[in-house]
Structure formats: structure tokens, C-alpha cells
């Protein structure tokens, strides 16, 4: 491990809940990016926990933008650096939560990708608006109970499937798109490195469980993140030059675990009946067949 890797650019003392996957994700991402990085963040858990004025957990220059324009502000930073002739050796990273990427910041993100700025956009996905009290988002998976998609006699919880954000971003024809997971740190670091080395826009979708919103123990965070990959719920892949037909699955479980192993660990899915789980299993099986993942055990 190099000296650069030992630097903690995301300082202790941030207010993330105990066992928050976001802390692990940002720490590891900044270890790869190093101190020559300028970051922007939009509103979301990450901003709330790390920049409570007058304190900040960041050791790198950071601009806090509004909810919808992390990508737009990063685009401004990148253009200004180029204009001043100081872009060489400087990484520009735009961070966003799932709300600020999938829903509210989507037009700014799409615009940034289309204009071809040399920016790495990193979406840290915990599958709902967690810091305002667990409201559903277009990243919330089918069947999850949230405060605005509550379960009950006539409701299964969230009734719509998760938006395939990485595929949508890849469809812009950008040079590098990848999905990553905090349980697979080496894979995550490799992808961050590739994304930063890419000339032009890169998009990274990082899966990070939330103990508060998903209703699991704070010590289960990494295990649940790993189960998402082992069951095929979240597939780790990368797409080069937006060639969606030619995606490369980077982590292939030898044998896929049943999706129930992942669902039953979280209380947001606690209300699902056997039939509901069978339906989710069928959808996951179909998806995994498309990605060429192995059959279920």
C-alpha cells in the first residue's frame, strides 16, 4: 500500500449513522483520487453528514451545490480549470446521492455527459431519500416499504422497479460507465481509477446499504451489500464507450444464492409473501440471464 493510500481525505467525526455504507464508499474513493481532487456534492445524506457548518469532513476542496446541480457545478469547475490551463493532474469528481442523481439532478447529469466534460460522476445509491426520512425514489426497488410507499392491505410497498441509471448514462455514449459495491473494495477502487483516468465523462454507480432506511443491523451493512451481488440483485459491470451490447461483468458469483437470502435480512422487505418473493426472484433470474450470470443454486 502506498503512502497516498494511507491518507484519510474523508475525516473521522462525520455524522453518518453507525454502519453507514456511504462512509466506507467515500473514504475508499478519495483514497484512489488523492489530494489533487476538486469535488462537488449535491444535497443528500453525504452533504448533511459531512458538512455541518462550521465543520467539514473533507480534506479536499469541495463545493456544495443545490439538490439538482452537482454535475452542472462540476462542469463549471472543469471548464474554468481548462481555461486557466490548470486541469492537468487534477481530478474533478461530482458526488450525488440517488435522489440527486436518479430524480432531481438527472437533467444536469445528462447535460454534463452529453457535453463531454472530463468529470467523474459518482452516484452513491442507498435506494431512497434517507436523510429526510426514507421517502421513495426512482432508485427504490420493487417491494420496498418506505414512508411514502408504505405497505398495507392494498399496497406491497414500492410498486415500480428500480431505474437502470447506469445503462441510461451509458446510452449517452460516454467513455466509461460502471457499477460498484462497497463489499468489493478492490473492484470499486479499480473502477474509480479507470474512471478518473478516462478522458471525458465517466459515471460510477456505487451501491451502499443504509441501516436506518433498510432496517437492518449496523454490523450487517457489508454483508448485505455482498448478498446483493451474490444473489444477482445488483450486478457489477462496466461499459466502455457506451457499448451497452458489450458490457463486461466484473464480479461473477460462482453460484447465485436465492434472492430470499438478501430480502429476508432487511425489514423494509419483511412484509413480502412467498408469492411476492417468487415474483422478484423471477425478475432477477431474467435479468441475470441477460447479463450471462450463472444459474441459481
Amino acid at each position: 500500500m502506498t503512502e497516498k493510500e494511507e491518507l484519510e481525505l474523508f475525516a473521522s467525526g462525520h455524522r453518518a449513522c453507525a454502519g453507514c455504507g456511504e462512509g466506507t464508499a467515500v473514504r475508499q474513493i478519495l483514497k484512489v483520487a488523492g489530494p489533487n481532487t476538486i469535488a462537488t456534492i449535491c444535497t443528500g445524506c453525504l452533504e448533511v453528514v459531512s458538512t455541518g457548518y462550521p465543520e467539514t469532513a473533507w480534506e479536499i476542496p469541495l463545493i456544495h451545490a443545490a439538490f439538482e446541480n452537482s454535475a452542472a457545478v462540476a462542469a463549471g469547475v472543469e471548464v474554468a480549470l481548462k481555461e486557466l490551463g490548470r486541469k492537468e493532474g487534477v481530478n474533478v469528481i461530482a458526488f450525488g446521492g440517488d435522489g440527486g442523481t436518479f430524480d432531481i439532478g438527472f437533467q444536469a447529469l445528462s447535460g454534463m455527459l452529453e457535453r463531454g466534460h472530463d468529470i467523474t460522476y459518482i452516484c452513491i445509491d442507498n435506494e431512497a431519500y434517507m436523510n429526510t426520512g426514507i421517502q421513495r425514489c426512482s432508485s427504490t426497488p420493487y417491494g420496498a416499504s418506505t414512508t411514502t410507499s408504505p405497505t398495507g392491505k392494498y399496497s406491497i410497498g414500492e410498486s415500480r422497479p428500480k431505474k437502470p441509471i447506469a445503462a441510461i448514462c451509458a446510452a449517452h455514449g460516454i467513455p466509461y460507465t460502471a457499477t460498484a459495491n462497497i463489499a468489493y473494495i478492490n473492484d470499486l477502487k479499480k473502477k474509480v481509477k479507470k474512471a478518473l483516468e478516462t478522458e471525458g465523462p465517466a459515471f460510477l454507480h456505487v451501491f451502499a446499504p443504509c441501516p436506518t432506511g433498510w432496517r437492518h443491523g449496523s454490523d450487517d451493512t457489508i454483508e448485505i451489500a455482498r448478498l446483493a451481488v451474490e444473489t444477482g440483485v445488483f450486478v457489477l459491470y462496466e461499459i466502455i464507450d457506451g457499448d451497452i451490447c458489450n458490457l463486461n461483468v466484473t464480479v461473477k458469483p460462482k453460484k447465485r444464492k436465492p434472492v430470499e437470502d438478501y430480502l429476508k435480512r432487511q425489514r423494509r422487505f419483511g412484509h413480502l409473501t412467498k408469492e411476492d418473493i417468487a415474483k422478484i426472484q423471477q425478475e432477477v433470474d431474467e435479468k441475470c440471464d441477460r447479463y450471462g450470470l450463472p444459474k441459481r443454486e
Binding site: A11, E55, T56
Partner: peptide, 20 residues
């Protein structure tokens, strides 16, 4: 709390002051 112009915070990593 003294508020600076544009709420710029020049003290990097100052969250370490808060012991979680």
C-alpha cells in the same frame, strides 16, 4: 459561529473536533 463570506470553510477536516 462566525459566518464567513459565502460560508467558505478553510479548515479542512475540522469534523475531527467532534468526537463521535
Amino acid at each position: 459561529v462566525k459566518i464567513t463570506l459565502g460560508a467558505i470553510n478553510k479548515e479542512h477536516g475540522s469534523s475531527r473536533k467532534y468526537k463521535t
